[in-house]
């Protein structure tokens, strides 16, 4: 099932609240590809990811997607009062993934029984990653995945991205810092006059 993913933007313009964020943006990602969206705050990086996820409509242009999508944005989307494993299980059951393995990959397996609300910022970010891992998706959309991560976790993040690409997955990440992704397309959003 992995390896047939595709994400293609053709002449996309994005408008939010009457303001044009970017226009005529085109790129294409196939199996194994990655792209990093960079640019200053408020330039439309997150909007670009939400466009890719199908949560926003483009003002013009077409977006083609093939394959399952997983979105990791700033919201955790895990029930705060539930133990981490159980909260993750809600999505894993829906997506057909395994929570135990995903938690082990982001080294949160020792916190599996801890309620989600007790997690620290970095741990929440890793829990989001675990949700992505357990979703068995082709296309990963990562919004500032490195925020709040320590050095060891950053290393894990770039390893996970690399192995996802090696198995034919696609990664589209928005970040203002280097993620250590090799041979990634650079999508730079510039400030508009």
């Amino acid at each position: 099932m992995m390896g047939q993913g595709q994400l293609r933007f053709e002449d996309i313009s994005c408008q939010r609240g009457g303001r044009l964020l970017f226009e005529n943006l085109s790129f294409a990602l196939g199996p194994g590809d990655a792209a990093v969206v960079s640019g200053p705050n408020g330039i439309g990086k997150s909007s670009l990811l939400r466009l890719a996820a199908g949560l926003l409509m483009a003002a013009s242009g077409t977006i083609q997607r093939a394959g399952r999508i997983a979105l990791a944005d700033e919201s955790l989307a895990l029930d705060r009062h539930l133990p981490l494993q159980e909260a993750l299980g809600f999505w894993a059951k829906m997506d057909g993934g395994a929570t135990g393995k995903a938690l082990a990959l982001v080294s949160l397996d020792h916190l599996a029984q801890v309620p989600v609300r007790m997690l620290s910022t970095g741990q929440r970010k890793r829990a989001t990653l675990a949700r992505i891992l357990a979703s068995c998706s082709d296309i990963w959309l990562l919004d500032e995945p490195a925020n709040g991560l320590d050095l060891a976790s950053l290393e894990v993040l770039s390893q996970l991205i690399a192995s996802h690409r090696a198995s034919g997955g696609i990664v589209l990440a928005a970040s203002h810092q280097s993620l250590g992704i090799e041979q990634a397309q650079d999508i730079r959003l510039e400030a508009r006059p």
Binding site: A53, G54, L55, R68, I69, A70, L71, D73, E74, S75, L76, A77, L78, R80, W91, M94, D95
Partner: peptide, 12 residues
């Protein structure tokens, strides 16, 4: 809506 559950469902 705040915790992103609705967005995650829409993505799926």
């Amino acid at each position: 809506m705040d915790q992103g559950l609705l967005d995650q469902l829409a993505v799926r």
